[in-house]
Nucleic acid binder design. Structure first.
Length: 1046
RNA sequence: GGGUGGUUAGCUCAGUUGGUAGAGCGCUUCGUUUACACCGAAGAUGUCGGGGGUUCGAGUCCCUCACCACCCACCA
């Protein structure tokens, strides 16, 4: 055997061996009658590369999986990848740009999607190979992909048809009314030009400003503005012809629909109900908006008056809805100010009529109105902001600072030309919380758009209930609260994305001809020619309403539309449903078809065009179905029967809402069952300074580089040992190196066993060994196994790993191997044979117990040591326990170890040369000690480096005392020791003892202690006191002797 | 603004029902002896963040303060 394990060479070889043996297949090594154990991998992005977080997450899953597999469970670890809508589309677009290929828009949807599939084929396997290098024992033959089976998939047969499952769920939920479409204010990402959900928004504090502007009252009206302090004393009274508004987003003033004040705010009571003017835009077309009341404005904040821009602010939207204020959208998909629709003058006139109460607008009509002044159209929102500020300020409508400014004070004044203080526009520097897209990193714009939503309120309750009742357990406990809090306050989930890469929403739209008045109410089947002619106008159709249906494919949806058409008068009821690209095409197709019919009077020429929703579903909608989708749902597959609900989910806390909570809701909504029984939530991996690993800081540790450098086992063991619940873990190379050394230690222990001809013995019975040492190590092994299993059962990965570390290194290597050496040299054939067999058994146990965490090195040693019927990956996990622990052997070996340590300690402190063998004097020893001492003489001699042992009546001068339980020994090293040093040593020991004795006596002397403490605690304390007192007496005696010397 | 977690040896962190504090790394000294120098032996270091309380007894439970981190949140 080599001196160290060659990880680089062995890992690939062992991986292949596992794979070709089908060792990871679902159900491999399952024992009859054993239950299933299944884990769904959190699917990494298909374009992703393995980072430390993956390594951590998957190591834990692998530990659990391998452990259960060895225990005979019917085990499945289901692998797969996520199509990751935005992320992947972003990567491919960037790639197109880098290689100077046509852009996404230039390519068009179909061609672009081909590119994405190409990219997926090229790079999609990267992370799988990386996971394999880590040793992940997934059933790779079952690899799933969330877009599998989607149109364009070049390999639709590989793995379950996830696409079909996703579409089916959408259709089902649509039909159950769990999904609806609506025009709502959503978070809009202007970079990707798509809506995103609340969760994809990061709120970041940024330095911003708050501007104060005057909105002049209509017609130059004035009012008495009065401010009072808390006691009701008037602090300011002036006549104003304006209302002061504070805003951090001046560009949105263009879309204001009202100014709101609190109903109890006396300052503005005189002007509530009147109109004021938005102080921006061409003077002749300034819009007047009403001053309304709403509970939302906080009278204490700013001026107490809030401008209401319903289409660009979530609060304002609420106010607008309550007050029936129109919402005017100002921006396009890129968050540039709109450049469409009517010229400003005309649009403003319409809006004015609305504000005057002369007319009202439907939501669609309001949305169509572009109230951006002509000269600002097309500007970026931030450029527009600057212009708006400049224009208002120039016009003198900015609120100016004053010497007693309550906010800025006199400091805000600037010297004018004469050197006197002059007011300047009131602009507060202010930290504002700005929403950013988590992927795009650009400022999110609230936008009023049509989107699809999951009505989460309707499906949330079972997800809450399952965790409340413990049907699904979330660990650590603290995350339960987080889960509850989020779900109890859940908002509708925006699931449509204006992207191309994803599951295209299975909804088709058609014009709602019924709403156009073509109802067959009379039942006469006649259609007025005039009405028909009106339909000829495609423009009219484009403005019209539409209806939608959802179905898995066009054929199915066509049937639904046909049913609706059947209720219409002739000839519309005979129209043939066809699919066209979009709304525009549909309008023209319908108009053409009607024109055609008008000429031909042939109803077979009539078509009813429908078009499919171009949007795709949020990636998390599909990954929310991961547990059932990977198992072949909607078919009732055997895998679904066996492995669902899954046993454990291992997830980072950062995706509890994104993924865990949604899987709960979705699975319960779709198949009415929980997706998993246990959720183990782990923390984040950070760098050694505690920072989140990020590419921009450059502190990212590449797990594969670490694997190259230290081996997969070391990386895995490190991550497992650091996986204490609920806390972030900091990863450093030192730590990994330490565990690499642990692997080497194990390797060399096995090498030692081999060198001493320790071969596994068939039918070896650990309970039957005779030698005390062997009985002892067998018991220690049982203890280690029990502790390990108990820890893993409770997901205390760190305890499991550290326990094995201490057992293998601290017990087996440090003591058992050393004890074995004199036994092997004893010449007693029976002892040697038993020790060899025990040693081989012990090493095997080490390999088995360590295999889940260190699969490679243990598998390699397993084969190195002997030819075996099965690989270690399928070895039987031991079930032995307390029965193997021999209390007497335990006590005896503890005593021996204590004695050896004591002698070593004294030697070292007295500077006895390490290589020198010394004589041991035996002064007094009780019967138990005597027996232990004699049985283990050979080991004690060797490990304490003794030349011989002599019984003495009294401790000779110049001997150093070695006090142990039940006896006193001495080392006659007079010529070697420094008396003062030995005195100091003993004084120190006495000091420690005195402290301990004080505590123990204090407790025992306290009558209340004896009364209230449990008996065994009192008993233990008494015993401790006695032992400490005995020790103190011995040390004192030794000190006396030294004092005699001088 | 709300919530959660944290503050233990030089560093990174364990410490499961309250019984009197541990590990790894680092450091110091010594060391080549049937595996291992990626090693062995020995050793040093703690007002368990501050204060108060409950208790015979508190790192552990309660209150409070301070600081750090993270999550959630609509203050114009």
């Amino acid at each position: 055997m080599e001196k160290t394990f060659n990880a680089a060479e062995a890992e690939a070889r062992i991986s292949n061996a596992w794979e070709s043996a089908g060792a990871f297949r679902a159900g491999a090594n399952a024992k009859d009658g054993m239950p299933a154990y299944s884990i769904m991998i959190p699917p990494p992005n298909v374009t992703g590369v393995l980072h430390v977080g993956h390594a951590f997450n998957n190591t834990l899953q692998d530990v659990l999986t391998r452990w259960h597999r060895m225990r005979g469970y019917d085990t499945l670890w289901q692998p797969g990848t996520d199509h990751a809508g935005i992320a992947t589309q972003m990567v491919v677009e960037r790639e197109l740009a880098r290689t100077q290929q046509p852009s996404r828009r230039e390519l068009g949807r179909e061609k672009f999607l081909e590119k994405v599939w190409d990219w997926k084929e090229q790079s999609g396997g990267t992370i799988r190979e990386q996971l394999k290098r880590l040793g992940a024992s997934c059933d790779w033959s079952r690899e799933a992909f969330t877009m599998r089976g989607a149109p364009g998939d070049p390999a639709p047969e590989e793995g379950p048809n996830f696409h079909e499952a996703v579409i089916k769920v959408f259709v089902d939920m649509y039909e159950k009314g769990y999904i609806y479409r609506g025009k709502r204010l959503v978070n809009w990402d202007p970079h990707f030009e798509t809506a995103i959900s609340d969760l994809e928004v990061e709120n970041i504090d940024t330095a911003g400003h708050m501007w104060h502007f005057k909105y002049p009252l209509a017609g130059g009206a004035t009012y008495e503005y009065v401010e009072k302090d808390a006691d009701g004393n008037v602090t300011l009274r002036e006549t104003r012809d304006y209302i002061s508004i504070a805003t951090t987003r001046p560009e949105t003033m263009l879309g204001d629909g009202a100014v709101a004040v609190h109903p109890d705010d006396a300052r503005y009571a005189p002007i509530v109900g009147t109109l004021c003017e938005i102080p921006v835009g061409p003077k002749e077309h300034r819009r007047l908006i009403p001053i309304i009341t709403d509970d939302y404005p906080d009278p204490e904040f700013g001026s107490g008056a809030v401008k209401i821009t319903g289409a660009h602010d979530f609060n304002d939207y609420g106010v607008a809805k309550r007050g029936n204020i129109p919402c005017y959208r100002l921006m396009d998909t890129k968050a540039h100010l709109r450049d469409d629709g009517l010229p400003y003058a005309e649009a403003a006139a319409v809006a004015q009529a609305v504000a005057n109460g002369e007319r009202s607008l439907t939501e669609t009509e309001a949305d169509a109105l572009n109230l951006v002044p002509d000269h600002l159209r097309g500007l970026d929102r931030f450029a527009a902001r600057e212009k708006v500020i400049a224009e208002i300020t120039e016009e003198g409508l900015a609120v100016m600072t004053r010497a007693d400014d309550p906010i800025l004070g006199k400091a805000a004044l600037k010297p004018d030309a004469d050197g006197a203080d002059a007011p300047v526009p009131l602009v507060e520097a202010k930290t504002i919380t700005q929403p950013y897209g988590d992927r795009s990193k650009v400022v999110i714009e609230p936008m009023l758009t049509d989107q699809w939503f999951v009505d989460t309120a309707k499906i949330v309750e079972p997800a809450l209930e399952a965790v409340r009742t413990g049907r699904t357990r979330i660990m650590p406990e603290q995350h339960r609260k987080v889960y509850f809090h989020w779900l109890e306050n859940i908002e509708p989930w925006t699931i449509s994305r204006q992207l191309w890469w994803g599951h295209q929403i299975p909804v088709w739209y058609g014009f709602d001809l019924g709403r156009h008045g073509f109802r067959d109410d009379e039942g006469d089947g006649a259609l007025d020619e005039v009405e028909l002619l009106r339909l000829l106008d495609a423009q009219t159709l484009l403005k019209g309403d539409e209806r939608h249906h959802s179905a898995a494919d066009f054929e199915a949806v066509a049937a639904q539309f046909a049913d609706v058409l059947a209720g219409l008068p002739t000839p519309l009821n005979r129209a043939r449903v066809i699919e066209v690209a979009d709304r525009n095409a549909a309008a023209h197709a319908l108009a053409d078809s009607l024109a055609d019919y008008n000429l031909s009077q042939d109803p077979t020429h009539l078509v009813y065009p429908v078009w499919r929703d171009p949007d795709v579903l949020d990636t998390w909608f599909s990954s929310g179905l991961w547990p059932i989708g990977t198992l072949g749902w909607p078919e009732d597959t055997p895998e679904l029967q066996r492995y669902f609900p899954t046993s454990t989910l291992v997830s980072g806390f950062d995706i509890i809402f994104f993924w865990v909570a949604r899987m709960m809701m979705m699975q319960l909504a779709v198949v009415d069952d929980i997706p998993f029984k246990d959720v183990y939530v782990h923390a984040l991996v950070r760098d050694e300074k505690g920072r989140k690993m990020s590419k921009s800081i450059g502190n990212v540790l590449d797990p594969l580089e670490l694997v190259d450098e230290y081996g997969a086992d070391a990386v895995r063991f490190t991550l497992t040992a650091m996986a204490a619940m609920g806390r972030d873990l900091k990863l450093s190379k030192d730590r990994i190196q330490g565990y690499r050394n642990f692997g080497t230690k194990l390797w060399n222990a096995a090498r030692f066993a081999e060198m001493n001809d320790c071969k596994p013995v068939d039918g070896f019975d650990p309970a039957a060994v005779q030698q005390t040492v062997n009985r002892w190590i067998v018991g220690e092994t049982a203890r280690a196994r029990l502790a390990h299993d108990e820890a893993l059962e409770a997901y205390r990965f760190n305890d499991a790993a550290n326990g094995l570390y201490a057992y293998v290194w601290g017990t087996v290597c440090d003591w058992y191997l050393e004890f074995a050496k004199p036994l092997f040299a004893s010449g007693d054939a029976a002892v040697i044979a038993e020790t060899r067999a025990t040693m081989a058994w012990v090493i095997d146990q080490c390999l088995i117990l360590l295999h889940p965490t260190m699969p490679f090195i243990t598998e390699e040693l397993w084969a190195e040591i002997a030819d075996r019927p099965k690989m270690l990956v399928h070895a039987d996990w031991p079930t032995y326990g307390d029965g193997l622990i021999d209390a007497a052997a335990d006590r005896e070996m503890r005593w021996v170890i204590g004695l050896i340590e004591e002698i070593r300690s004294v030697r070292q402190q007295m500077h006895v040369p390490a290589g020198l063998k010394v004589q041991l004097l035996q002064l007094e020893l009780d019967a138990a000690g005597q027996a232990a001492f004699e049985t283990n003489r050979a080991m004690i001699d060797r490990l304490a480096r003794l030349s011989d042992v002599t019984a003495v009546e009294a401790m000779p001068k110049g001997a150093v005392t070695v006090a142990v339980e039940g006896g006193t020994f001495g080392l006659p090293i007079a010529d070697l020791i420094d008396v003062d040093e030995e005195k100091a040593r003993l004084e120190k020991v006495l000091g420690k003892l005195a402290k301990e004795l004080g505590g123990l006596r204090g407790r025992l002397n306290n009558p209340k202690f004896a009364e209230s403490a449990p008996e065994e605690v009192v008993e233990e304390t008494r015993h401790n006191l006695a032992a400490r007192e005995e020790e103190e007496a011995k040390i004192k005696a030794a000190l006396d002797r030294l004092n005699e010397i001088g």
